[in-house]
């Protein structure tokens, strides 16, 4: 498994310097040891408040610093806070012009709120994916830590409204009740699922395959790096399925770009 080339569909790097407890070079060295060739990254504002336009741009500029230095290894999602309608759309266009591969939304708004619609229309126009920080925490205490986190139901509704859009639900292994999420996503063919997160439950990937199909699964770590590979090793995957999850599915999304 370590020798199988992989695209990590959900990762973070700090840009210049240290953030999240590591440097971009640390992340690349770790990726090398696990066969991760490309890392699709973002730097979101992970607080329960809106990002200012300046903060949005600063996040994306920090990532762009790394993208320019490691263009063969790093791909970028532009972090957007859709609450800043005009400024955020400008930022989306600026980042697409700089070669970012898509958009990253955090928990400032729910995925099926109308404030997102212009961004979905822009993503459809450019045929780029949108990665959502998502989850379904059961515990009330945790829910109120992120009261506007989107769940699979929000994403499924957004996808039904915009069936041409490519949505990626982030971290099935780190977003609460993954069984609930899988049930919601059965009827949402426009929503891909990334495998990242610190949860390495036995049977997780096999249940994902059974629920949404191999063709909608994307290998990812979200900084849980051995766990990301380990949960694939736990699964009963054929070589062709492994290839699809580790590379072909995400490459297919990237190849859609106009």
């Amino acid at each position: 498994m370590l020798g199988i080339p992989k695209i990590d569909a959900h990762m973070h790097v700090p840009g210049e310097g240290r953030r999240y407890g590591f440097t971009t070079e640390d992340a690349l060295r770790a990726a090398d040891r696990l066969g991760i060739v490309k890392l699709c990254c973002s730097i979101p504002l992970a607080e329960n408040r809106n990002a200012t336009p300046e903060e949005m741009r600063a996040c994306n500029d920090a990532l762009d610093w790394a993208l320019q230095r490691w263009p063969d290894r790093l791909l970028g999602y532009a972090y957007l806070d859709p609450g800043w309608h005009r400024e955020a759309l400008d930022e989306a266009r600026r980042c697409l012009d700089r070669g970012f591969i898509g958009f990253k939304f955090y928990h400032q708004y729910l995925a099926d709120e109308p404030v997102l619609y212009p961004f979905y229309e822009l993503a459809i126009q450019h045929r780029v994916p949108m990665l959502w920080h998502a989850g379904r925490p059961w515990c009330n205490k945790l829910h109120w830590q992120q009261p506007r986190i989107s769940d699979a139901g929000n994403l499924a509704r957004a996808s039904r409204r915009y069936p041409e859009a490519v949505f990626i639900e982030g971290h099935i292994g780190g977003g609460g009740d993954w069984e609930w999420s899988l049930r919601e996503l059965r009827g949402a063919p426009g929503v891909y699922l990334d495998t990242s997160g610190s949860v390495v439950d036995d049977g997780l990937i096999d249940r994902c395959v059974a629920a949404v199909g191999v063709e909608r699964l994307l290998f990812a770590t979200d900084m849980t790096m051995e766990g990301g590979v380990g949960k694939l090793l736990d699964a009963q995957l054929t070589p062709a399925q492994t290839q699809a999850i580790c590379w072909d599915n995400m490459q297919g999304i990237l190849d859609r770009r106009r």
Partner: peptide, 17 residues
């Protein structure tokens, strides 16, 4: 390993690496 609630390979891989 955490079996049967967790899959074992994540833990094993940590030691392998």
């Amino acid at each position: 390993s955490g079996l049967p609630l967790k899959g074992p390979h994540s833990a094993l891989l940590k030691l392998d690496l």
